[in-house]
């Protein structure tokens, strides 16, 4: 017999665990944007060393499963004397991984910006740093907004992987409650609903932002 009562009873606890899901995907995406922008700038730089670094970075973080990256960070960092809480390590790793994808998203968007945009900035005498932060990256961000929202949604779902380093977010919490209540169907349906709700809100916010960025 399907039990709505189980859902009602456990919803508050599950919803509370969503704060880790949100924190890891949100902060991870934020870090990913910053690192991703830097990697993107390196990838299109004149300096061959910068381009090589960007290439290796993207290959590694895109080519190795996030699960393995999390485990590596968890076991490797203490070995080299870095002792950070699991949560911080998880956010950082998710951010580094997201940066690889985001840098490629931004690089694609950069290619869509007419060459004349940077030329006009150079002709006015803007320094490279201003050309990036004032002219190119704002336009690249706007162009890539749909892809970036996509990336954030992927991160919300990928954040369930951080359970391997002991963080109890939605997925881990639902497993725990399911085995304690013997009501897996109701609990996992609730978890599915929570993820769906989060991602619907992100998608709506993204569309809103896109509209406001229309110029």
């Amino acid at each position: 017999m399907f039990s709505f009562q189980t859902i009602i009873d456990n919803l508050p606890v599950l919803a509370a665990s969503a704060r880790y899901t949100l924190l890891i995907s949100g902060a991870g995406c934020f870090l990913g944007l910053i690192f991703g922008a830097l990697i993107c700038v390196a990838a299109v730089s004149r300096a061959s060393a910068a381009r090589a670094f960007a290439g290796v970075y993207v290959s590694f973080f895109r080519g190795v499963p996030l699960l393995i990256q999390l485990l590596l960070a968890f076991y490797l960092l203490p070995l080299v004397g870095v002792n950070v809480p699991a949560l911080a390590a998880a956010i950082f790793t998710v951010g580094l991984c997201a940066a690889a994808y985001i840098s490629e998203i931004l690089r694609g968007a950069l290619n869509a910006i007419p060459r004349g945009q940077a030329e006009a900035a150079m002709a006015v005498g803007l320094a490279p740093r201003d050309i990036w932060t004032r002219i190119l990256l704002p336009q690249a961000l706007k162009i890539s907004m749909p892809a970036l929202v996509n990336e954030l949604i992927l991160l919300v779902k990928a954040s369930s992987l951080v359970t391997v380093v002991g963080i109890v977010e939605i997925t881990r919490m639902s497993q725990a409650i399911a085995s304690a209540t013997y009501r897996p169907l109701e609990i996992y349906l609730t978890a599915a609903f929570l993820y769906l709700a989060i991602n619907l809100v992100i998608a709506a916010l993204g569309r809103n932002l896109e509209r406001r960025l229309a110029w």
Binding site: P114, G116, Q117, A120, A123, V124, G125, P138, L213, W215
Partner: peptide, 20 residues
């Protein structure tokens, strides 16, 4: 080079205004 370009204004065929 930037210092020299301050003295040189340029107008392009496609305007190249910054759309944002």
């Amino acid at each position: 080079l930037r210092e020299m370009r301050r003295d040189i204004g340029m107008v392009f065929q496609q305007f190249n205004l910054w759309p944002h």
